[in-house]
Design a protein around this nucleic acid. Structure first.
Length: 635
DNA sequence: ACGGTTAAAACT
DNA sequence: TAGTTTTAA
C-alpha cells in the first residue's frame, strides 16, 4: 500500500521521462526500414501469432493494442510489421531492451538526481539545475528560446492554433510569475535539452512531464505522446485532478481504485476532496488514508532516489495449458536454462557495476490433477546465492524440489508446472578495496584510496610476502585458478547487525566462525585493508554471545586491526571507527564448495570451525562460513 | 492462453 | 528479521 509522505517545503522540479513504445523504437533503430511503418513487437509467434508487448504509434492508429495477439493485429492492420523478441535459451531475451534503456539512463542522469523507475522510465530531480538556471540565465532574459521548447504543453494554458507557441513562449518568459512557475519553466527547458540529447545520441524519442512532484510528473508525461512534454503549474493541479478518473492514478489501477469507486462512490481524484482525512483512514488505514488525502490535493513528497540500476534481476517463463511441465527432468531442464541466463546477468552486474546479489529465489505456478480443493499455491523458496552457473542451478533445483514437496504434501498425484521464475535480489555494492581472493593472492589488490588514510593499512605498505597466509594455500589457489575460473571468492562487506539477533544454534556457529577467522587471518586483514566491526562484537559479547566474554582474543584482535577512535552513533551504540568508517565483515553466504579447492588438511581444519550449511531444502538457511569480507562504510 | 519483468508493501 | 505473498505497473 502507498505510504504518505509530506511534501518537502521548498518547491522541487521533478521530471518523469517515459520512452515512447520503447521496444518498437529499439527494433526500428536496429532495422531503420521499419521506421514509419506500423510496427509491433511480439513474443512467441507460434500460438495465435504471439502476444504483442509494444505497439508503435502508426499501428495504434489502426486500433492495435498491447496484449493483442499477432493474428488479431494482422487482421486490424494487415500491413503491420511484427517483430519478434529475441529468443535465447528457449525463452524471450530482453537484454537488447535493457541495454538500450541503460543508454538512455546514462544520458538522463547527467543533469540531476536520477531514478530508474523501469526499463524505459526515469524520474529526475532537476531542482538544483533549475535554480541554477533561474539565477544565472532565467528564461526572461533569453533572446531566443529553443523552438522545440515552445512545443511544450502547459496545463491550464488553453490556446490553440498559431498563437499556441507564442503563448507558451510568453508563459516561459513571464517575469511576473511566481518562483515556482519560473522554476518549472527552467525545468521545461532543461528537460527539452535532455530529450534532444537522448534523440541525438540514441535515436530514441521520449515524452516527459515536468511538475513539482513525482506523481504529477508521471501523470503529465502520459498526457501528450509521443515525443512531447507537458508542464504542470501549481495553478492547474486542482482542475487536472478534479476530472482525473481514479484508475489513471498510479497505485489506483487495481483493487484499491475499484474499492474507492464501489465503496465510496469516488470516480475522480477530485471526488476524494470531500472526505476528511479521518474518514479515509477509517476505510483504508492510516498510511493509505493519509496518502489518498494528500494525492487528492496534489501532494506527494516521495523523493527521487538516486538509483540508476535495478534492485533485482529475474527471469522466468510460462508453460501455458498443454505445455505444462510434468516431469522433474523437464523442470530441471528449464530451471537450468533460467539459471544460465540469470548467472550471466548477475555476473555482468558484478563485472560492470561491482554489485553482488545475495539471495536466490524461485517461484513457480502449479496445478494438481483431479484436485478440486482450492488450488494451493506453489510456495516461493529462497536461499543464499552462490556465484557460478552450476551452483545456481544446483541450488535452484533444490529450491524447486523443496517447493514441490510442500506443494504436494503427502499426496501422490499428478502435477504440472505452468510457470517458473528465478530471481537474484538483495543486491549490494561491492565496496572500494574489495577484491576476489584470487586477485588478492596474485597481488592484484584494488587501490583503496577512498578508504585509506591510515598509513599502516595501505596495501603497498605491506608487501604480499609478509602475509602469514600459508604459502601452500597460495600456491594451490593460484594453481586452481589456472584450472578453473569458477572459484572466485569475493570478499564482501556487510555490517554484522544481524548476528546479535540471530536465534538458535547458528549463533554459536557464527561466533566461533568470527573468532577462528580472526585468529587465522589477521595478517590478511592488514594486507587487505580490512578489519572487523567492533560494534557487532560488542553487541555479541554483551548479549547474544555470552561465550565471547571468555575469549581474551577480542582485545588482541582490536590491537592488531588498530582500532582507536571511539564513537557513539545515533542509536547510542558504541562503535569503534577509523577515519570515519566503521568496518564490518559479512558472515553470510557461505559456500562450502570453496573448500574443495584447498589442500585437504586445511579443509579439515576449516570444517571443524564451521558446520557445513544446509541449504535450499531445510528450514535452516544462510549459515555459516566466511565467504565474503571487507570494509564497509556505515551510514 | 495478458507474457515477462521489476518493485515494493503487507503479512507472518 | 527474513522470507513469502500480494499488488501493481
Amino acid at each position: 500500500m502507498p505510504i504518505a509522505r509530506p511534501e518537502p517545503q521548498n518547491a522541487r522540479v521533478i521530471a518523469h521521462v517515459d520512452m515512447d513504445c520503447f521496444y518498437v523504437q529499439v527494433e526500428q533503430r536496429k532495422n531503420p526500414e521499419l521506421r514509419g511503418l506500423p510496427t509491433a513487437v511480439v513474443q512467441y509467434n507460434s500460438w495465435k501469432g504471439g502476444g504483442l508487448i509494444a505497439v508503435g504509434y502508426e499501428a495504434r492508429k489502426f486500433g492495435v493494442k498491447r496484449s493483442m495477439r499477432g493474428d488479431e493485429a494482422k487482421r486490424i492492420c494487415p500491413n503491420i510489421q511484427l517483430i519478434q523478441v529475441p529468443v535465447a535459451r528457449g525463452k524471450a531475451d530482453l537484454n537488447l531492451y535493457r541495454n538500450a534503456g541503460s543508454e538512455v539512463v546514462s544520458i538522463l542522469a547527467t543533469k540531476g538526481r536520477c531514478e530508474r523507475a523501469s526499463i524505459d522510465e526515469v524520474y529526475l530531480d532537476l531542482t538544483d539545475a533549475a535554480e541554477m538556471m533561474l539565477s544565472e540565465t532565467p528564461p526572461e532574459v533569453l533572446e531566443e528560446i529553443d523552438e522545440e521548447v515552445l512545443k511544450s504543453h502547459v496545463l491550464g494554458l488553453h490556446v490553440e492554433g498559431n498563437e499556441r507557441e507564442e503563448n507558451v513562449k510568453e508563459w516561459l518568459r513571464q517575469s511576473d510569475a511566481d518562483h515556482q512557475d519560473k522554476l518549472l519553466a527552467c525545468g521545461a527547458i532543461i528537460v527539452e535539452q535532455l530529450r534532444m540529447k537522448v534523440l541525438y545520441e540514441t535515436k530514441f524519442t521520449c515524452s516527459a512531464g515536468i511538475a513539482h512532484n513525482k506523481m504529477l510528473a508521471k501523470l503529465a508525461s502520459a498526457m501528450h505522446k509521443p515525443a512531447q512534454q507537458t508542464v504542470v503549474p501549481s495553478s492547474s493541479v486542482k482542475d487536472l485532478l478534479a476530472s482525473l478518473p481514479v484508475k489513471k492514478m498510479k497505485q489506483l489501477g487495481g483493487k484499491l481504485g475499484s474499492s474507492l469507486q464501489t465503496d465510496l462512490g469516488v470516480n475522480t481524484i477530485g471526488d476524494l476532496l470531500q472526505f476528511s482525512q479521518e474518514k479515509l483512514q477509517e476505510h483504508y488505514g492510516v498510511n493509505t488514508g493519509t496518502w489518498l488525502w494528500n494525492i487528492s490535493r496534489g501532494i506527494s513528497g516521495d523523493a527521487v532516489v538516486d538509483r540508476l540500476l535495478p534492485k533485482s534481476h529475474g527471469c522466468g517463463k510460462t508453460f501455458p495449458g498443454p505445455q505444462a511441465l510434468k516431469t522433474i527432468a523437464s523442470v530441471e531442464n528449464w530451471v537450468n536454462q533460467l539459471c544460465d541466463e540469470l548467472s550471466d546477468r548477475i555476473q555482468s552486474d558484478l563485472d560492470q557495476n561491482r554489485r553482488i546479489a545475495h539471495t536466490l529465489t524461485l517461484h513457480a505456478r502449479a496445478f494438481k490433477e483431479n484436485d478440486m480443493e482450492p488450488q494451493r499455491k506453489f510456495p516461493s523458496k529462497s536461499c543464499p546465492l552462490r556465484y557460478g552457473t552450476a551452483k545456481i542451478q544446483e541450488d535452484a533445483v533444490k529450491l524447486f524440489d523443496s517447493g514441490l514437496r510442500d506443494f504436494l504434501g503427502s499426496q501422490h498425484i499428478g502435477w504440472g508446472i505452468t510457470s517458473l521464475s528465478i530471481a537474484a535480489s538483495k543486491i549490494s555494492d561491492l565496496p572500494q578495496g574489495t577484491c576476489s581472493i584470487l586477485k588478492f593472492l596474485q597481488g592484484k589488490i584494488p587501490s583503496s584510496t577512498s578508504l585509506s588514510g591510515a598509513g599502516e593499512f595501505h596495501n603497498e605498505s605491506l608487501p604480499l610476502s609478509s602475509t602469514v597466509m600459508d604459502q601452500e594455500i597460495k600456491q594451490k589457489a593460484l594453481a586452481s585458478e589456472a584450472a578453473s575460473n569458477d572459484i572466485d571468492i569475493i570478499f564482501q562487506a556487510k555490517p554484522l547487525k544481524r548476528i546479535g539477533s540471530s536465534v538458535g544454534k547458528t549463533k554459536d556457529v557464527r561466533k566461533s566462525s568470527i573468532l577462528k577467522f580472526f585468529q587465522s587471518s589477521n595478517s590478511s586483514f592488514h594486507t587487505m585493508n580490512q578489519a572487523c566491526e567492533r560494534s557487532s562484537l560488542d553487541q555479541a559479547s554483551s548479549s547474544s554471545f555470552p561465550e565471547c566474554e571468555e575469549h581474551s582474543d577480542l582485545e588482541q584482535i582490536d590491537e592488531q586491526v588498530g582500532f582507536s577512535e571511539d564513537r557513539i552513533d545515533s542509536d547510542g551504540h558504541h562503535n569503534q571507527t577509523r577515519n570515519g568508517y566503521t568496518w564490518g565483515i559479512n558472515m553470510e553466504n557461505i559456500d562450502p564448495s570453496v573448500l574443495d579447492e584447498l589442500p585437504m588438511e586445511i579443509q579439515r581444519e576449516i570444517r571443524e570451525w564451521f558446520h557445513p550449511p544446509k541449504r535450499a531444502n531445510t528450514s535452516r538457511k544462510g549459515s555459516s562460513i566466511v565467504h565474503y569480507f571487507s570494509p564497509v562504510k556505515k551510514g
